[in-house]
């Protein structure tokens, strides 16, 4: 299912998250509901990944 975005300025109107490479390490949520993704600013404990291919 490739995204149908092409052309020279395609890169410009992509959302920021589309250009990020989501790190494998899970993030965490603090008491205010804020998400902390960088391991630098949170406990950054590794979340064991559930089985990834969940198609059953």
């Amino acid at each position: 299912s490739s995204a149908n975005v092409s052309g020279p300025d395609a890169e410009d109107n992509l959302p920021e998250w589309a250009m990020e490479n989501p790190s494998e390490v899970g993030g965490t949520f603090d008491a205010s509901g804020a998400f902390h993704g960088e391991s630098g600013d949170d406990e950054g404990h590794k979340i064991e990944n559930q089985s990834r291919n969940q198609s059953d």
């Binding site: 920021e16 990020e20 989501p22 993704g37």
Partner: peptide, 24 residues
């Protein structure tokens, strides 16, 4: 119903975290 404060560029990372935390 819950909310999570997140920066736009972290949304996929946050979603990935939800996938690993939740019993979907």
């Amino acid at each position: 119903q819950y909310y999570a404060f997140v920066q736009e560029r972290q949304k996929v990372h946050c979603l990935n975290t939800l996938f690993s935390k939740l019993q979907i």
